[in-house]
């Protein structure tokens, strides 16, 4: 039987390295690698060597993932709930992107400048709005998890990124592959794939 948890995790991460798949799936690295190799044997994922290489889905893998998550949603019988949660997510999404942009760029005297993070009051304001948005995102995550338990991992990953940022590791807002923005975007991708919607 196809290993949907690992296949789908990689589908939403896109194209990435082993450690990130393990981290996102909540599995050990050796276990993840062995599962990826099984998926590769079935022709669903492939590993590209080289400096910019990594693990990704084949076209057959994308088709299999789409089929399996659709079947999973049908079995759960919660399409209506997931759709409603997706609509709530779409209300939050532009605000999240605004905040990521405000984190990177800051208009000063009408000139959009790279935020050099020397104005701690400005950074604190942006971070406070991330925290406020995250409170509202928690409701969406809870509704999603009730509808389909595998969505539960996003809440923990979003919280972990925000906690690191609040503890002073501010790159975890929008600048790392495990940042709030990165996890958020995977959640966006997951919702689109789960509901069978094009981007």
């Amino acid at each position: 039987m196809t290993d949907l948890p690992v296949l789908h995790t990689l589908r939403c991460l896109g194209f990435t390295d082993l450690d990130r798949v393990a981290d996102a799936a909540g599995l050990t690295t050796p276990d993840t690698e062995s599962r990826l190799i099984d998926l590769a044997v079935d022709g669903l994922v492939t590993r590209t060597p080289g400096a910019f290489g990594g693990w990704g889905l084949t076209e057959a893998g994308k088709a299999a993932d789409a089929r399996l998550v659709a079947a999973e949603l049908d079995a759960a019988g919660t399409r209506r709930e997931v759709t409603a949660a997706f609509e709530a997510f779409l209300v939050l999404n532009p605000e999240l992107l605004d905040l990521c942009t405000a984190w990177h760029l800051r208009p000063v005297d009408g000139v959009p400048e790279t935020n050099d993070h020397t104005d701690t009051a400005y950074d604190a304001r942006v971070l406070a709005r991330f925290v406020d948005l995250d409170r509202r995102a928690a409701d969406v995550c809870a509704a999603l998890t009730a509808a389909l338990p595998r969505f539960g991992r996003y809440r923990g990953r979003l919280t972990a990124a925000l906690d690191l940022a609040r503890a002073g590791k501010r790159e975890h807002l929008a600048d790392t592959t495990t940042s709030y923005h990165s996890v958020w975007f995977q959640l966006h991708e997951d919702l689109l794939v789960t509901l069978g919607m094009p981007r």
Partner: peptide, 13 residues
């Protein structure tokens, strides 16, 4: 046209 997580390796490269 636009990018998504599926393009991350291309963006990185």
């Amino acid at each position: 046209p636009h990018t998504s997580p599926l393009d991350m390796h291309g963006l990185a490269a």
